[in-house]
């Protein structure tokens, strides 16, 4: 018998992650007639972004496209996925995927289906030039993803609603912000951004998670079908590499200059990001933190 899953997204519908996922759903629905259908309900206007974790946990929705930073309330470990230095494919080989699924099932009643965004570093974007990784005296807009790292470089951090970032940049309320290498143009922030600091750090993560009870209740054929479709989707992650190169080119064309450090400083910069990130994960989740680091880190 055909099963229908209700799918929501933590990102607004006009964002590229969502558009790409909706295309994947449409294709899967064509192939899955009689076995499994996915009904895409919508983005944050249906379920608030930070409530999607709870909605999946309790079965209000069956499946979600979201990122770990949005459900750290359920499990602080969720934020560790951004620290992965090994690819999703490698995670499936080295046991990281199994550990993730054990933790996700135990703590959030979620089946961790697939990671559909990776190979995507975050960057620090600035309007004032720096010559070393020191943000003393600069006001930087943050989300929880970047807070600890930017604070460790001495930044004055502030939280700003996404809709106010453009004005805040234009008026100099903030001197910079953290963001992935892509998706800048969706928000038009390139218009008010002068520099991007290279190298990037971390690894932006967007994944599909499924309510565990729902997952267990699926007929084997539906479960196999969904697994196959998800693996195929995850298998296309190499796409992000070329996509991100293209985005970097677009940024250059939009007049964003790169600030880079010498090799040694760059290495230390990335290392510091990782150290700070893991320190906070291990502090909030001593149980699984170190184990996650062994499998996700290099």
């Amino acid at each position: 018998q055909e099963v229908t899953l209700r799918v929501v997204s933590a990102f607004p519908e006009n964002q590229y992650y969502v558009k790409r996922t909706v295309e994947w759903i449409d294709k899967a629905n064509k192939e899955g007639k009689g076995v499994l259908q996915m009904n895409f309900i919508g983005g944050p206007k249906a379920i608030p972004t930070f409530e999607i974790g709870n909605a999946v946990k309790t079965g209000v929705v069956d499946m979600a496209l979201t990122t770990g930073a949005y459900y750290t309330n359920l499990m602080p470990e969720a934020d560790a996925l951004k620290l992965a230095e090994v690819s999703a494919a490698e995670q499936r080989r080295n046991g990281a995927y199994d550990l993730i699924n054990k933790i996700w099932q135990e703590k959030a009643n979620m089946y961790y289906l697939a990671r559909v965004v990776e190979f995507t570093p975050f960057h620090l974007y600035l309007n004032k030039k720096i010559d070393k990784p020191d943000l003393t005296g600069l006001k930087i807009r943050i989300t929880p993803v970047y807070r600890d790292f930017f604070q460790s470089m001495g930044a004055a951090v502030m939280t700003t609603a996404p809709g106010e970032v453009y004005t805040a940049l234009e008026r100099g309320v903030i001197d910079g912000y953290g963001w992935p290498i892509h998706a800048l143009f969706d928000l038009n922030w390139q218009e008010k951004t002068r520099f991007r600091v290279d190298p990037g750090f971390y690894n932006a993560e967007v994944s599909l998670v499924v309510n565990l009870d729902k997952w267990k209740s699926l007929p084997p054929a539906a479960r196999d079908f969904l697994t196959r479709q998800a693996l195929a989707y995850e298998g296309q992650n190499e796409f992000w590499k070329s996509y991100n190169q293209n985005e970097a080119r677009r940024q250059a064309q939009a007049g964003i200059q790169t600030i880079s450090f010498d090799a040694e400083t760059s290495r230390k910069y990335v290392q510091q990001a990782n150290e700070v990130g893991w320190a906070s994960i291990i502090k909030t989740c001593p149980q699984y933190g170190p184990h996650l680091r062994r499998l996700l880190g290099r």
């Binding site: 379920i47 608030p48 930070f50 409530e51 709870n54 909605a55 309790t58 079965g59 209000v60 939280t159 609603a161 809709g163 106010e164």
Partner: peptide, 21 residues
């Protein structure tokens, strides 16, 4: 969806006004 939905409704209500904007 039933009780889970009603509990989610309560949580969404809290989030609705806890907004800096």
């Amino acid at each position: 969806g039933g009780e889970a939905g009603l509990t989610q409704l309560a949580r969404n209500s809290v989030v609705s006004v806890a907004s800096f904007s």
